[in-house]
Design a protein around this nucleic acid. Structure first.
Length: 315
RNA sequence: CUGGGCGUAGCG
């Protein structure tokens, strides 16, 4: 069973939900006894792959198999309910467990911060962090990152900054995730200087830089029309041996298109095709919009037709 | 170090 679980773990890491799902079905057929590790791996894999319904289905199978969920499985389930928009059930699950006198661990607290923050209950999420501290559970960077993430998503830049400061004031070291998040936060609010200053900080602290950080900055450069900076970033990314992904290319197309530099945008698009990157409506609409802005209507028309031919539908 | 909470998606 351990071997099977390890294999499932690999599929989870590779975000291969269909594969994992079928593999687990096969396990059941072969009569392998699934355990809490199996189920929690499956459930979290489904969750990561945006298949929360499947996660629920496996939770039901778990009950049917008479396996009693442990803390890990339960805390994964609070996230499942939360992602399904069933906030009340997530909280209910947590509260019921607490009634049994069980003491949640750091990760469970982290999950609940996630649940509350997703539901927009920020005061409650913050209260949980305080509760952790009072209990001596030492909130870590991950808990704070969770909260920052939701503030970032909602465009609540000020709140995100506040949490970031609070975290540092407690002597919790910002991880590369934290700084990456904060770079994204500043990028979204057009705070170019702050974003780059945190980027410098990451370099000084020798934190690992990956494509995601560059993507955040590139996106910002697109919005803020900083083509030269954007080009510097892409060069640097390649020099570091990082691999541009779909988002990197999209940001680049946007960067050029926003400036009306359609030929360059098209060059990026061709490169996308070469490396097998899917071209979607977003890419085409960037180009079409750029044509509109530069009054090249016949060219816009051409892109539109090309889009339809390539199997994309106008949305 | 067999499993659970955090970063680049979403009104372009």
């Amino acid at each position: 069973i351990v071997v099977y679980n390890v294999l499932l773990g690999t599929m989870r890491a590779g975000r291969q939900w269909k594969v994992a799902d079928e593999f687990a079905m096969e396990m059941v057929k072969e009569g392998v006894q699934l355990d809490n590790y199996t189920f929690s791996t499956l459930i979290s894999c489904a969750l990561q792959c945006k298949a929360p319904r499947d996660a629920l289905a496996w939770f039901d199978r778990m009950a049917a198999a008479g396996i009693v969920p442990d803390e890990v499985t339960y805390s994964t389930m609070t996230l499942v309910y939360s992602r399904l928009g069933r906030f009340d059930e997530a909280v209910e699950l947590y509260e019921n467990l607490r009634l049994t006198g069980w003491k949640p661990d750091r990760v469970t607290y982290g999950s609940m911060v996630n649940v509350y923050a997703r539901a927009g209950k920020y005061q409650k999420a913050s209260a949980l962090i305080k509760e952790m501290r009072d209990l001596g559970l030492k909130p870590d960077a991950v808990v704070y990152n969770t909260l920052i993430k939701f503030f970032a998503r909602e465009g609540k830049t000020g709140q995100a900054k506040r949490v970031f400061k609070e975290m540092e004031s407690y002597g919790i070291k910002a991880s590369e995730f934290t700084l990456s998040l904060m770079i994204d936060v500043h990028g979204r609010s057009g705070n170019v200087a702050e974003a780059f200053s945190l980027f410098e900080r990451m370099k000084e602290e020798k934190l690992p830089l990956d494509t995601a950080v560059y993507n955040s900055l590139l996106k910002m450069c697109g919005e803020e029309r900083k083509v030269a900076e954007g080009e510097r970033l892409i060069t640097e990314l390649l020099e570091r041996g990082l691999k541009p992904d779909e988002m990197t290319y999209k940001s680049l197309v946007n960067l050029y298109a926003k400036e009306g530099r359609i030929d360059e945008a098209v060059k990026v698009m061709q490169e996308m095709i070469e490396v097998g990157c899917p071209i979607d409506v977003v890419v085409y609409s960037c180009l079409i919009k750029a044509c509109g802005a530069t009054k090249q209507f016949e060219r816009a028309e051409k892109f539109f037709e090309e889009m339809l031919v390539s199997g994309n539908r106008a949305d």
